[in-house]
Design a protein around this nucleic acid. Structure first.
Lengths: 152, 152
DNA sequence: CCTGAAACGTTGGATAA
DNA sequence: TTATCCAACGTTTCAGG
């Protein structure tokens, strides 16, 4: 990971579909050498994948929320986790320390759907308590800019 | 957004660098028609971008945490927000409802760096209270799978 | 939405630093 | 080892239907 790799990484976070030719021009290397560096970044796990970023609002799911959940004690957390991830509107989930066991990120069509989801949780998934926080705004610069900054 | 667009979206979330030729084969369309659909998905905002996904652990920042913060009242939240996003280790931030104003996601080199960050917050950024939760595990299937599921 | 052809981008082998 | 050049090959884009 030298300075050139850092520039490559920054560019690929900004535009994951940039051609090796343009990337090479940016770092003043040949396309071949550039492609090889990208391959190694993937092989070493620094780049874990390339993804299209989907706007949930444009897909009719403008209401995002964090749902913190606490599960009933027991040895069946693996099954409960899997069940949580199949719920409608659930985008992702994280096991965290503290008062809550998990924080789910959800994207709902409207408040009715969110209400339904929050009401359904304690009924069927071993959830004993929830706390819902609406996402009002994602701060600008989240994501691409952050990686560039962390790389120095 | 017909069924073909949904398949295209799913494939592009799985592999953002797949060629139009392979994508076309998958949906049994010509590469030209496929590329045109992708272009329209971008133009309509459904696809907001293509990004390389970076593994913070492979970059020497294995310790992820949510830091919930409450800011002092005042009209200067815009500046404070900008300042928060320039902090070392901060990946992203979200303005949320509830007891806390923001939830920051951070990736630290070690607990010492996390401690330093949490101690620094109330000193210089208008932060009056924080709550830190370590990310123990991101549940499998977060991301790509979720989009496919939400598309039906 | 398709075809076909031109423009463009990627890959691999030989080679040099 | 790491990068380069160049030519073969694959991919994307554009015009015309």
């Amino acid at each position: 990971m030298d300075g050139i790799d850092k520039v490559i990484l920054g560019e690929l976070v900004r535009d994951g579909r940039v051609s090796f030719r343009d990337l090479a021009e940016r770092v003043r290397l040949s396309p071949t050498a550039t492609a090889e560096r990208v391959r190694k970044l993937q092989e070493s796990g620094v780049i874990s994948g390339f993804r299209a970023e989907v706007d949930m609002t444009a897909l009719g799911r403008p209401l995002k929320a964090f749902i913190d959940v606490r599960l009933r004690p027991g040895p069946d957390h693996a099954e409960l986790e899997a069940a949580l991830l199949t719920l409608p509107a659930v985008l992702s989930g994280v096991h965290v320390t503290g008062r809550w066991d998990y924080t789910l990120t959800v994207a709902c069509r409207d408040v009715a759907e969110l209400d339904e989801l929050v009401m359904a949780l304690p009924r069927s998934y071993g959830v004993v308590e929830t706390n819902t926080r609406l996402l009002l705004r994602e701060l600008a610069g989240s994501g691409a800019e952050a990686v560039t900054r962390l790389l120095g």
